[in-house]
Amino acid sequence: MSNIPSDLRYTKSHEWVRQAHGEAPDGAVEVGISEHAQSALGDLVFVEVPQAGRSLSAGEACAVVESVKAASDVYSPVSGKVVAGNAALATQPELVNQDPYGAGWLFKVQTNVSIDGAALMSAADYAIYLADEAK
């Protein structure tokens, strides 16, 4: 069973969202891909993150994660403006494999949408969703 932290929200396309802490401005959320997604992709060889300042709408493809066998788009779970992309991934894409919920975050978005909104799944719902997908 894959690791699904209970304090995050999830999408059907396997992104996670977290209220950003620390230096991020108010209303910024952090986005990454789930443990399940990184494991399905395998060793990542390249990650492309959006540049700060870019405006995103929810569901827009804005990042790419590439392994030897697949290249997948990452969709923004919320609408808003990109505050930062994770620059470390340019040289260390493996961070997404090693620490998908921590150092392997992809980008931060400033949004005025509440991440508790109905469009995102709770950890428990995402676990059920994964179990259904596996059938």
């Binding site: 060889v45 590439e66 392994s67 030897v68 066998k69 697949a70 290249a71």
Partner: peptide, 9 residues
């Protein structure tokens, strides 16, 4: 870099 190519992408 085959992930860019048609048989995968």
């Amino acid at each position: 870099l085959q992930a860019r190519e048609q048989h995968i992408r």
